[in-house]
């Protein structure tokens, strides 16, 4: 677990529309990488290309490579379903399966992978819920539907569901943008803990959050309307926020951060 990602010359398209151009960057194992940038610059698109979720959009296309500890997830013969089992994802809007119990939600990924052993599922449920800082709140109602939890709890349930399969990488697309400040703090604390075991990539529009949780930050931008989004720079988070090397980064950060 906890593998490194090497993204090389990634170009992403929706039909004819060139959404993202020439992204090359490294994501280190057991660290948090934040993607920041104005809305529409392609952060989510790049993130979704990492676990081959980009291609579920009809007409979409990927060029370039994404290496997971050296193995290209886009190599011919690689099954996207398998890729998604090793690179987990948490979405902007918490999306537990509403009709499934909390327990079934947590182990949904394991069940899909064919795990049937009751005892193992029981262990994983507890371990994942503890890992997502949710165990104490839900341990007495594991059989209640996942749709009955609060927004913040639902998002932590989704994180528990994602880490239950012990993924190599965990992708998060604005996981706190629909949450109140207290739930947001809970998730940020959780991210800090999870990075001991997982490689995490998080998209956030909240720069304070990027500064708080991430080790390195990638700034994406749109050079002009209608043009593809680009990676402007990537670097150690402290440096990006205090002393960026690109003017565009500095403008963006000082415009909203300073």
């Amino acid at each position: 677990m906890a593998k490194r990602l090497d993204i090389k010359d990634l170009n992403l398209y929706y039909n004819k529309f060139h959404a993202v151009r020439d992204v090359t960057l490294q994501v280190h194992a057991r660290s948090v990488t934040a993607f920041i940038g104005p809305s529409g610059c392609g952060k989510s698109t790049v993130l979704r290309a990492l676990n081959r979720m980009h291609e579920v959009v009809p007409g979409s296309r990927v060029e370039g490579s994404v290496l997971l500890d050296g193995e290209n997830v886009y190599a011919p013969g690689v099954d996207p379903v398998q890729v998604r089992r090793t690179i987990g994802m948490v979405f902007q809007r918490a999306n537990p399966f509403p009709t499934m119990s909390i327990r079934d939600n947590v182990v949904a990924g394991l069940k899909l992978a064919g795990v049937k052993d009751k005892k193992r599922l029981e262990e994983v449920t507890e371990r994942s819920l503890r890992g997502a800082n949710l165990w104490e709140e839900v341990k007495d109602r594991l059989n209640k539907p996942g749709g009955g939890l609060s927004g913040g709890q639902q998002q932590r349930l989704c994180i528990a569901r994602a880490i239950a399969v012990q993924p190599d990488v965990l992708l998060m697309d604005e996981p706190c943008s629909a949450l109140d400040p207290i739930s947001t703090l809970a998730i940020e604390d959780l991210i800090a803990e999870l990075k001991k075991d997982y490689t995490i990539v998080i998209v956030t529009h909240n720069m304070q959050q990027a500064a708080r949780v991430s080790d390195q930050t990638a700034f994406f931008n749109l050079p002009a309307v209608g043009e593809p989004g680009q990676l402007v720079e990537i670097g150690e988070t402290g440096k990006i926020f205090s002393n960026p090397s690109q003017k565009a980064t500095e403008d963006y950060i000082s415009g909203r951060f300073g």
């Binding site: 579920v56 379903v81 899909l112």
Partner: peptide, 15 residues
């Protein structure tokens, strides 16, 4: 069926 639900299942490695 809400798209977020379908994507949630896909992202877990569902066929």
């Amino acid at each position: 069926t809400p798209a977020v639900q379908i994507e949630g299942a896909l992202a877990l490695g569902a066929t």
